[in-house]
Design a protein around this nucleic acid. Structure first.
Length: 427
RNA sequence: GUGGGCGUAGCUCAGUUGGUUAGAGCGCCAGGUUGUGGUCCUGGAGGCCGCGGGUUCGACCCCCGUCGCUCACCCCA
C-alpha cells in the first residue's frame, strides 16, 4: 500500500528552493534589482549555455574552472557548448555582438555551473547576482561597481563583510612583474608545497593565492604586484582607492589577492564574510578586464564587473543571525465558504482583480477546519460565507488579528465587500 | 579527483550488549453537540529503518558493496 520512494531527486550539488525560503531569494534578487536600477544599470539576459570558446578565451585554459569544472557538451549539430561557469563572459559576448552605446551598464541574475564536489557554500549549480560596465576605464566606475556591491551587502543586513582590493596591472606591467616573480620563485621553489614546486611555471600568480604556510612564507617576502605597477596603473589604482575612501567605504589592500579567472587586469576585489567559518567565505568579487572584449572578437573595450553568490550571501546572513525578512508580504483576506456556491469563486476573483491578496480553502472542509487554515495563512481578515450570508447577500468579515475572538466581526453587503476591504487596506 | 561523518514517519531525532507488534516531539487529518482560528484534551493517518548482498535461530543494530547527503582538501560565488 505504501508509495514507492521517489525515483528522482535534484542532481548532486543542486537544490530546490521552496517557500518560505524562496521569499528570501525573491527579496534578495528584488533588492539587488532595485539597487542596480538606482545606479543606472539595466537587466541583461543571455543564454545559459554558450560556445565553449566564450568561456575558454577569457577564463583561461590553464584555470581550474576551465580544466576540470566546465559542463561541456555537444548538441545534435556537433557544436561544442558549455553551461556558463560564471556571468561575465556571456555578458561581454553579448556586448561584442550587439555593440550597445557605451558606457554600457548591465546587471544580471543567473545560475552558474561548475562540476566539482559540493560542500558548504559550493554547489554544481549556484546563482549569481552581478553587474558589468563596459566602455570606460574611468576609475570612478570601478568605485561605483564596488559601491553597488557594498551597498547591497549593507542593505540586506550584512555587517561582517570586509572588502579586499588589489590591482593586477595592465597586460604589459603584469607581464614584467610575472617575470620578476618567476625569478624569485625559481630561487625558492624548494620551499613551496609539492603542487607548486613543479607547477608554478604554468601560472606563477597562482602561488600567491596558495594558503599553504610554506608557500605563504615564501611569497610574503617576494615581490608584490602593487609595488611594480606602471605609472598609469598605479595612478588608476590610487584613484580607485581615493574614490572608495571618499565614499566612506572601508577597504583592505590585499596584494596577494589573485582571482580565479585570467581575464582580470588592474582593479580586482573580493568581499569576504567573516561570519562564515566555512572554507567558502567569499560572498562576492570581481574586477576590471581590459582585454576580454577583444579576446571575444570585439573592439578593445575596457570593462569592470562583479558577481555575488546568492547561496553564500544567504549563508552569511544566517551566520550573522539576521532574521529580518527581505520581503514583507502577507495575505489580505482569506475566504471561508461552506456553501460551495459559485458566487464565492466570483467574489474571490473580484477581490484579486481589485488588488486584494486573497486565498481561500478548497475541498469543502468544515468551517472550523477552514478557519484554522485561515489563521495559519497570516491573512488580515477572514471573509465567512455560510448559508445565512448567502441567503442575505452578505459576508461576515472577521478581524483575524484581534485579541477578542468573538467580537471582531461584522456583516458587510456582498456588493460592498471589495470596496470595504480596499478602504481598510489603505488605512 | 582524494579523505572523514551520516542515511529510522512530511520535519527534527530516540531506538537499550543483535530478540519477536519500530517510538517521541512538531506537522497533517478528524472530533471535543447546534456555522468560527492562536492554548488545551482525545483519536487517527503516515515508516521496503536509503538500496543490494552476507553473518545469525533471529538484523534498524554486525560485515561487505552500492547509492545519496554532508564536511574538508583542491578551487571558487
Amino acid at each position: 500500500m505504501s508509495e514507492p520512494l521517489p525515483p528522482f531527486q535534484a542532481p548532486t550539488g543542486t537544490h530546490d528552493v521552496l517557500g518560505p525560503d524562496s521569499a528570501l531569494w525573491e527579496g534578495l534578487v528584488g533588492t539587488f534589482a532595485q539597487r542596480a536600477y538606482r545606479y543606472g544599470f539595466s537587466l541583461v539576459m543571455t543564454p545559459i549555455f554558450e560556445d565553449v570558446g566564450v568561456f575558454t578565451r577569457g577564463i583561461g585554459e590553464e584555470s581550474d574552472v576551465f580544466r576540470n569544472e566546465m559542463y561541456v557538451f555537444s548538441d545534435r549539430g556537433e557544436r561544442r557548448y558549455a553551461l556558463r561557469p560564471e556571468g561575465t563572459a556571456s555578458v561581454v559576448r553579448a556586448f561584442v555582438q550587439h555593440q550597445p552605446t557605451t558606457p554600457w551598464k548591465a546587471w544580471y541574475v543567473t545560475p552558474a555551473f561548475r562540476y566539482e564536489r559540493p560542500q558548504a557554500g559550493r554547489y554544481r549549480q549556484h546563482y549569481q547576482l552581478g553587474a558589468e560596465v563596459l566602455g570606460t576605464e574611468d576609475p570612478t566606475v570601478d568605485v561605483e561597481v564596488i559601491a553597488l556591491a557594498h551597498g547591497f551587502f549593507r542593505e540586506i543586513g550584512l555587517t561582517r563583510v570586509r572588502l579586499l582590493v588589489n590591482s593586477m596591472g595592465h597586460t604589459a606591467c603584469r607581464a614584467s612583474y610575472v617575470e620578476l616573480l618567476s625569478e624569485y620563485l625559481a630561487e625558492h621553489q624548494d620551499e613551496l608545497v609539492d603542487e607548486h614546486r613543479e607547477g608554478w611555471r604554468l601560472n606563477p600568480l597562482r602561488v600567491l593565492d596558495c594558503k599553504n604556510e610554506s608557500c605563504v612564507a615564501v611569497t610574503a617576502k617576494g615581490p608584490m604586484l602593487v609595488d611594480h605597477l606602471c605609472a598609469e596603473c598605479r595612478d588608476h589604482f590610487d584613484q580607485v582607492l581615493a574614490g572608495l575612501s571618499a565614499l566612506g567605504i572601508e577597504s583592505t589592500l590585499a596584494p596577494r589577492l589573485v582571482r580565479g579567472f585570467d581575464y582580470y587586469s588592474r582593479t580586482t576585489f573580493e568581499f569576504v564574510a567573516d561570519a562564515l567559518d566555512a572554507a567558502q567565505n567569499a560572498v562576492g568579487g570581481g574586477g576590471r578586464y581590459d582585454t576580454l572584449a577583444e579576446q571575444l572578437g570585439g573592439k578593445p573595450t575596457s570593462g569592470i564587473g562583479f558577481g555575488s553568490g546568492v547561496e553564500r550571501v544567504l549563508l552569511a546572513r544566517a551566520a550573522e543571525g539576521i532574521v529580518t525578512p527581505l520581503l514583507k508580504r502577507s495575505l489580505d483576506v482569506f475566504v471561508v465558504d461552506t456553501t460551495g456556491d459559485v458566487g464565492v469563486a466570483r467574489l474571490v476573483e473580484d477581490l484579486r482583480s481589485a488588488g486584494v491578496a486573497t486565498e481561500r480553502a478548497y475541498d469543502q472542509r468544515s468551517m472550523k477546519a477552514q478557519m484554522k487554515v485561515a489563521d495559519k495563512s497570516g491573512a488580515r481578515w477572514a471573509l465567512l460565507i455560510g448559508p445565512e450570508e448567502l441567503a442575505a447577500g452578505e459576508v461576515t468579515m472577521k478581524d483575524l488579528r484581534s485579541e477578542d475572538f468573538n467580537q471582531a466581526q461584522s456583516r458587510v453587503a456582498r456588493s460592498e465587500i471589495v470596496s470595504t476591504v480596499q478602504e481598510l487596506l489603505t488605512k
